[in-house]
């Protein structure tokens, strides 16, 4: 019983982290039909911005929750101007886009490794701190940074949902996901909307990077190792759909935490995520909430 309750808590933490990363990935896919393999390494960049602030400059980690989203958003917007927009204008096809994303992912990952080295590092925080009342009342472990992940993710994603549903920018993003040409013909400044989509995607994954750095630790393949799991979340929920990404993140997180109890081998967590993704792709490629349109 305790084992199951603990698994629920772990799933919530993991799902909240995945969701922050997955929503940005799926927004970029929806708006640009681009599978951004560099998304994971953007997460790593966010984690190292936290490392620079917290460890190298000895400042409070709280600053990183602002700085990392800004830096990663700036990087993402930079890739739009330097890489993606020229590639679209050149009329690039699918394989070209995939390989460009891979090239960018490699470049970013090894640039990070060049600057910060290949070792595992920790923030100078007490990440063994647990929430006392959860321990006393239920005899369960909920780390302080786990709770922070859940809360930040919840607040931020509610904000993103409001942005998408209520604002002109968010509606423009959804319009681009539906039909870029029609959006352009309706007067939407599509270039500007795309830039904002990158900024949002980068900011979310940058934030996820700091939280991953705090709850896991910091190393150059941190984001890459999470990337396939994040793809799994996005695909299971329905690629291109922000709510799908959110739902998919918790589906994957819960499946991982509970099935791993069945398999009885923690090391197969990631594999469980992949297997579920492959099964969903075979049975229902548009995912739980996705539209057929997005996958054609």
């Amino acid at each position: 019983m305790d084992e199951l309750a603990q698994a629920v808590l772990n799933s919530l933490t993991a799902g909240s982290l995945y969701a922050l990363a997955a929503v940005g990935l799926t927004l970029v896919y929806g708006v640009l039909r681009l599978t951004n393999f560099a998304h994971g390494d953007m997460l790593t960049l966010g984690a190292y911005v936290g490392y620079a602030i917290n460890v190298q400059w000895n400042l409070p980690l709280a600053l990183a929750f602002v700085a990392a989203p800004v830096v990663v958003a700036a990087f993402a917007v930079g890739t739009e101007y330097v890489v993606w927009r020229p590639l679209r204008r050149a009329g690039a096809g699918l394989l070209q886009k995939l390989l460009m994303a891979i090239g960018l992912a490699l470049f970013l990952r090894y640039a990070i490794q060049f600057v910060w080295g290949g070792d595992r590092d920790f923030y100078e925080i007490d990440n063994t701190a647990t929430i006392a009342w959860v321990r006393d009342a239920f005899d369960l472990t909920l780390g302080f940074y786990d709770l922070l992940t859940i809360v930040i993710s919840l607040v931020v994603l509610v904000g993103v949902a409001l942005l998408l549903a209520r604002t002109l920018l968010g509606t423009s993003m959804r319009a681009l996901s539906d039909d870029v040409d029609l959006a352009e013909s309706s007067g939407v400044d599509t270039d500007r909307t795309v830039v904002w989509t990158w900024a949002l995607s980068g900011a979310l994954v940058g934030l996820a990077g700091v939280l991953a750095g705090a709850t896991i630790n910091v190393y150059p393949t941190l984001g890459w190792d999470l990337l396939l799991t994040i793809f799994a979340c996005v695909i299971v929920g329905g690629i291109g759909s922000a709510y799908g990404a959110l739902l998919g993140s918790y589906v994957i997180a819960f499946s991982q935490e509970f099935l791993v109890l069945v398999v009885d081998d923690q090391r197969y967590k990631t594999t469980i995520g992949f297997v579920i993704m492959v099964l969903v792709l075979l049975v229902r490629p548009q995912g739980i909430l996705g539209s057929k349109r997005a996958v054609n």
């Binding site: 423009s172 959804r174 996901s177 029609l182 959006a183 309706s186 539209s291």
Partner: peptide, 17 residues
Amino acid sequence: NVFPTLSVRDNLMIGGI
């Protein structure tokens, strides 16, 4: 010539952007 997942109101909103 419509945005299929957007509500009617949101379609109009995009038109007025």
